[in-house]
Design a binder for these strands. Structure first.
Length: 425
RNA sequence: GGAGGCGUCGCCUAGUCCGGUCUAUGGCGCCCGCCUGCUAAGCGGGUUUGGGUCAACAGCCCAUCGCGGGUUCAAAUCCCGCCGCCUCCGCCA
C-alpha cells in the first residue's frame, strides 16, 4: 500500500509514477474520490455515535418519564448509528480497495518502460568461449543425465511437467549450495530461518501476490492456504501486526524454503530442463529496515548476491529493472543474470527488490523510534535459487568429457569433491 | 480427530457469573519532574494503537479488552462463528 499522505498531498507524483510503469492514472482520481467519501462517512458516523454515547450515559440516572423519553430517542438513534456505521465501513472498504490497487511508486532512478527497457548496470566476468576451447557445450539436461544429477523423466512421471528429481551429486550440489549460502549469510550477520511454505491469505495479500500475480499462486483446495512462490511471503508476514524496536533495525533474515509457482502464461517457455519449474528451493535474504536506509540496504543486498555469484565463478550482468516490470510491491529491482552457455544469453539467477513501506503498511508493521512510531521498509533478495544456479554451474564449468569442475568455494561443502564425473556416456 | 481450559493498553494482573460513572484496576518496567554530594529510595505526573478534525506531534472526538457477527437504548461483560495458545485422550514422522 502506498503512503496515503502522498496520494492526498501530491497526487501528481502518483500519476507520474503510474505513467512510468505504463499504467493508467485513473486509479489516482478513484482513490482520491474514495478518500473524500470515506472521510465524510467517518464524520457522519462519529457524530451519530458520539450523540448516542452521550445520551446513553444519562439513562442509568434517569427516572420515570424522562427515562422513557430518553429510551425512545436512543432507540431511534441506534438505528441511525447502525446505518451510518455500515456506510462508513463500505466507504472505508471502497477506499482500501482503491488504494491497494495502486502499485508502489517506482523509484526515481528506476528506468521507465516495460520488460525490455532495463538498464545494464555492469557486466562481471566473461562468458566462456567454448569454440576457442574446441568443444560444443552440453546443456544442463544432458549434463544432469550424464552425471546422474537430474532426473527429468521421472520428475514428469511422478509429478508432471516442470518437475524433476535431483539425485546423487545433483542432490549433493543443492545441499552444498544451501550451506554455502547460509554460511555467507550467517557471517554477514543474518539470522538463519527455515520458513513455512504454506501461508494464509493475509500473508499472500500483504506481500502483494494476490494482485496481478494471483494466477501464478497455488492454493490448497478447501484449506484457505497458499503455497508460497518465495519465502519473501512468510518472512514479510513474520513480523505482521508488530511494532519493532527501531534500535533493533536492520533485522536481516536468510530464509530457506521451497518455492511453488504455477508458471501460468509461460506455456512453451523454457520447457526443457530445470530453468523454469513448478517447484524449487531457495535461500532468500529478507530485511526490515528504516525507509531512509532502504536504498543503501538495497545496494548491500545486491553486493551480497554478487559475492555469492562470484564464489561460484559465474559470468553475469546486473540489470536495473524497468518500472513496468517491477511487480506490485517493488520501488526498484536489480536482477543478476548469469550467462547460460547453451542459451547464449544471460538469464535471471537472483533478484533483489526494495519494497519500501508497501508491504509493511499492508501487514501492519511499524517501528518504534524516539520520535514515535513510524513506517519501516522491507527488502528482499535471492541469495541462491537452487535450480537455476545448478544450471549455470553445470553448463559454465563443464569439461569436454561431460565432467564438471566444482567451483573452489563449493568444494568444502561437497566433501572436498573437485570434479563431478559422468556415470553415463 | 475427540474432551476441557484460556486469550484485557510492553510484561503480569483486577473486572466477565449479576451488561450502565470501566473516560478498563493495580503492580513491574519505562519516560518527565521534584527531592538529593552521586546513585538508590521516596514523592508527583505520564505511559496501547489506529483514525477523524485541526496550522498543530495542542485540544476535542471516534474506534480498539484475540478476530468477526448478533442481542440491547447500552457489551471487556450475554449469544454465535472463527483464529491462536495450553492440558488430556487418540493418531503419527
Amino acid at each position: 500500500m502506498i503512503d496515503t499522505r502522498i496520494l492526498r498531498d501530491q497526487p501528481d507524483r502518483v500519476r507520474a509514477a503510474q505513467a512510468k510503469r505504463g499504467l493508467s492514472d485513473a486509479v489516482v482520481d478513484e482513490a482520491l474520490a474514495a478518500d473524500q467519501a470515506r472521510r465524510r462517512a467517518i464524520a457522519e458516523y462519529e457524530a451519530r455515535r458520539g450523540e448516542q454515547k452521550a445520551l446513553g450515559k444519562q439513562i442509568p440516572q434517569a427516572q420515570g418519564e424522562e427515562k422513557q423519553a430518553l429510551l425512545e430517542r436512543t432507540k431511534a438513534l441506534a438505528a441511525e448509528v447502525k446505518a451510518a456505521e455500515a456506510a462508513q465501513v463500505a466507504a472505508e472498504e471502497a477506499w482500501q480497495a482503491a488504494v491497494l490497487a495502486i502499485p508502489n511508486l517506482a523509484h526515481d532512478d528506476a528506468p521507465a518502460g516495460g520488460e525490455d527497457d532495463y538498464t545494464v548496470l555492469e557486466t562481471v566476468g566473461t562468458p566462456r568461449d567454448f569454440a576457442a576451447e574446441g568443444f560444443e557445450p552440453r546443456d544442463h539436461v544432458e549434463l544432469g543425465r550424464m552425471l546422474g544429477a537430474i532426473d527429468m523423466e521421472r520428475g514428469a512421471k511422478v509429478s508432471g511437467s516442470r518437475f524433476y528429481f535431483l539425485t546423487g551429486v545433483g542432490a549433493q550440489l543443492e545441499l552444498a549450495l544451501v550451506n554455502l549460502a547460509m554460511e555467507q549469510a550467517r557471517n554477514a550477520g543474518f539470522t538463519q530461518v527455515i520458513a513455512p511454505s504454506l501461508v494464509r491469505p493475509r500473508a499472500m495479500e500483504g506481500t502483494g501476490f494476490l494482485g496481478q500475480a494471483a494466477d501464478d499462486v497455488y492454493r490448497i483446495e478447501g484449506e484457505d492456504l497458499y503455497l508460497v512462490g518465495t519465502s519473501e511471503v512468510p518472512m514479510a508476514a513474520y513480523h505482521s501486526d508488530e511494532i519493532l524496536d527501531g534500535s533493533s533495525l536492520p533485522l536481516r533474515y536468510a530464509a530457506f524454503s521451497p518455492c511453488f509457482r504455477k508458471e501460468a502464461g509461460s506455456h512453451g517457455k523454457d520447457t526443457k530442463g530445470i530453468i523454469r519449474v513448478h517447484w524449487f528451493d531457495k535461500v532468500e535474504m529478507f530485511v526490515y529496515t528504516t525507509t531512509e536506509d532502504s536504498d543503501a540496504e538495497h545496494q548491500r543486498l545486491l553486493a551480497w548476491e554478487k559475492e555469492f555469484l562470484d564464489k561460484l565463478e559465474l559470468a553475469y550482468r546486473v540489470i536495473d529493472v524497468a518500472a513496468g516490470d517491477l511487480g506490485l510491491s517493488a520501488t526498484r529491482k536489480f536482477d543478476c543474470e548469469a550467462w547460460i552457455p547453451t542459451q547464449g544469453r544471460y538469464r535471471e539467477l537472483t533478484s533483489t527488490s526494495n519494497c519500501t513501506e508497501f508491504q509493511t503498511r499492508r501487514l501492519d508493521i511499524r517501528g518504534r523510534f524516539p520520535e514515535g512510531t513510524a513506517p519501516i521498509s522491507t527488502l528482499n533478495g535471492t541469495l541462491c535459487a537452487m535450480t537455476r544456479t545448478i544450471v549455470a554451474i553445470l553448463e559454465t564449468h563443464q569439461n569436454a568429457d561431460g565432467s564438471v569442475t566444482v567451483p573452489q568455494a563449493l568444494r568444502p561443502h561437497m566433501g572436498g569433491l573437485d570434479v563431478l564425473k559422468p556415470m553415463h556416456a
